[in-house]
Design a protein around this nucleic acid. Structure first.
Lengths: 251, 251
DNA sequence: ATCGCCTAATAGGCGAT
DNA sequence: ATCGCCTAATAGGCGAT
């Protein structure tokens, strides 16, 4: 965590090196006091994921779609946890940065970032997933999650998908030279573990128990319904199991 | 290279797992026989970059803009190469995938992927770069490279920028079940080393020696001139030094 | 051969109601 | 409090000339 924070906060320190070419303000009505900080989180946190996978033989196997980070991991631990079914898993991890004005207890997931039930009627058809519903208080919409619950690799490795999100939240401070916090330093990080498609939608079917676990996302209404994102509720994830939402707030 | 190829080609093998949710055809007039393969290269090759940096203490320091992969590396080797000036460098690396119909001896670089001369008149102004020209045979355009030639980190580390591109080229074969190549397997990989902003534009000023080292990019004419990309010529890079373009063709 | 037309996918800030 | 309006940045396939 020390190294993460150091590398994250360095981006603000380096302001003089990018201030004349900053990422442009975007979205509906930017206030103008914020810098898009997506890459800072993806790099300072994202590239450290692999450090935690020592001993798990991480392999970044090719796939044309999916989240930021993905590693096939293998270990005897996994063989134990799965009661001998498989020694591997495919860790799917996305970094989801937000600032203080967008720090709600949810995050937005694309259809390529959630696994489903994985229906496979015939080899020729390939795998598809049942369509889910993002259930809101005022409205609802279909959610076409596109990731299978597990993959079988060419070498026979059976890799169930484990979907995680890492959510750094940054502060917005004034930029000042010299010592101490300034710019957009790291404030806290949440580690979110989202149920795999089978527990999510088949058994125990968490989505049935908690229909608004997925709720309407951030896309505009004109977006292709097949690609519409959904928000996932941290409160409901915690209710399913408290370890699914872990937050570290920095001193 | 064996591991890279294996992880790259696995994407085609896994076709049944993504065929119902493929990345959509895009661009001007897609023929329809190709799958966008960007992520395959970024993962199967990109995540292996760090494996080559063992012993160089790679640090993925935060920055709001820049290329795919970036690592501050440190080693006594570097201290030797730079005649004792610094023991560090900031490796900037982009993966630039193309298929057989777009396999030309150049690649397209954004303004956030080329370093410049780094003018710094006063601390308050920050660093900026002289505007370059992408010189074509029929036309030319300004290129506002945005990366400084070097960074000075908060701990005093002086890190000159080393800009590289890794260019995987895939084949387009029919998708067939079972053994052997199918889908979009890796065909060759080029490793491109682009001069840092100082040699590029100050001394020896390669761009002056070879004005069309940078030539017009792929953006439409309406694009903000500050953000317009440029192509970089592999022929001219080779002329500067043959080690700047290294290609491995797979058997 | 040159160069730029053209669009998918990602992302999250922040307003409208 | 809910939800969706809104836009930057990346990327490279492939046509037009």
């Amino acid at each position: 965590m020390v190294a993460i924070r150091r590398d994250y906060d360095e981006a603000s320190y380096l302001h003089a090196f990018w201030k004349n070419y900053p990422p442009e303000k975007r979205g509906r009505a930017p206030v103008g006091d914020q810098f898009p900080w997506i890459e800072v989180g993806e790099h300072a946190l994202g590239s450290k994921v692999i450090d935690f996978l020592e001993g798990y033989q991480p392999r970044d196997v090719g796939l044309p779609t999916g989240p930021d980070q993905r590693y096939v991991v293998s270990s005897n631990d996994i063989l134990g946890i799965t009661n001998g079914i498989t020694a591997s898993a495919w860790l799917f991890i996305d970094i989801k940065s937000v600032g203080p004005r967008d720090d709600f207890s949810h995050t937005v997931m694309s259809h390529n970032q959630i696994s489903g039930d994985g229906i496979w009627n015939s080899p020729a058809e390939g795998i598809s997933n049942s369509i889910l519903t993002a259930t809101g208080k005022r409205t609802s919409h279909p959610f076409h999650c596109s990731i299978p619950p597990l993959y079988v690799l060419s070498d026979g490795t059976v890799a169930p998908v484990i979907m995680m999100a890492i959510k750094p939240v940054y502060k917005m401070l004034s930029l000042q030279e010299g010592i101490g916090e300034s710019g957009q330093p790291l404030s806290k990080v949440s580690l979110i573990t989202i149920p795999n498609g089978i527990p999510l939608t088949v058994s125990p079917n968490y989505l049935k128990q908690h229909p608004s676990l997925l709720f309407p996302g951030k896309d505009d209404k004109g977006k292709d319904p097949l690609k519409v994102r959904a928000r996932i509720s941290f409160e409901l994830l915690s209710k399913i199991a408290d370890w699914r939402v872990r937050t570290t707030t920095l001193a």
